[in-house]
């Protein structure tokens, strides 16, 4: 009779965490940053597969790590938000509830499945005033962080976070875009040409759905 070999829970969790971290840091970074009229989402992304997406009127999503995995979560988030908004009202859809749902799902995958999700995601919500903004960062094990001013996920996120800590100041959109581009370029030894970024804003001055993508041509005008 063969004996099942024993692995201590600590060891197992550590292995899983290490595996997930490795996967996430292999990718490129995505930044969420408050600017004067809302929140900017900015990703180092040369492909046409989006990392940033609209979820609801005031809520957006950004993922880092394995595309197939965060794409799945993105869709689940849209379904959750649309269903809540349909059953109750559009005002009742909040980023906090969504971030909690994500945290629960990701957390249970981490503890129950053999392979953890190799992702880190951002759920952001723009408020009527800046104090009402919400930036939630959710990690591969389901831990959730309520961030202020900015947050970075994926790639070399720790270094970028440090860089932003000293240089961030609330500014108009142009300033925020330039700062994002600068720190991404510095934190990365690969050369970034223009037009390899993906950017979108949640703009509180916009009526109705406040999510808006900034295409390459628009970005160009800001980087001049």
């Amino acid at each position: 009779m063969s004996m099942p070999y024993y692995v201590s829970p600590e060891q197992m969790m550590q292995d899983k965490a290490e595996y997930a971290r490795k996967g996430i840091s292999r990718g490129r970074s995505t930044i969420a940053m408050e600017y004067e009229a809302g929140i900017l989402l900015f990703a180092d992304n040369a492909s046409t597969l989006y990392k940033i997406s609209e979820i609801y009127d005031r809520i957006a999503f950004a993922g880092a790590g394995k595309y197939s995995e965060f794409e799945h979560l993105r869709k689940a988030g849209i379904r959750h938000a649309d269903m809540t908004g349909y059953v109750y009202s559009r005002e009742d859809v909040t980023a906090r509830s969504l971030a909690n749902a994500y945290s629960q799902t990701i957390g249970s995958v981490f503890s129950q499945e053999v392979k953890p999700l190799e992702i880190e995601i951002l759920v952001v919500e723009v408020g009527e005033r800046r104090e009402e903004n919400g930036i939630y960062r959710i990690q591969f094990d389901g831990s959730i962080h309520d961030e202020r001013s900015f947050a970075v996920v994926g790639g070399n996120s720790e270094a970028l976070n440090e860089a932003l800590k000293t240089r961030y100041a609330l500014s108009p959109l142009k300033g925020a875009l330039q700062l994002c581009r600068e720190v991404l370029a510095e934190g990365d030894d690969r050369k970034n040409g223009r037009g390899t970024f993906e950017a979108a804003v949640l703009d509180r001055t916009q009526k109705g759905r406040q999510f808006r993508r900034l295409d390459a041509a628009t970005l160009e005008t800001y980087f001049k």
């Binding site: 979560l73 959750h80 649309d82 269903m83 809540t84």
Partner: peptide, 16 residues
């Protein structure tokens, strides 16, 4: 609210 499910229910809210 809606449980996050692993099999994809498609892009129609009506069907969802």
């Amino acid at each position: 609210m809606s449980p996050f499910q692993l099999n994809d229910p498609g892009s129609s809210f009506h069907d969802l």
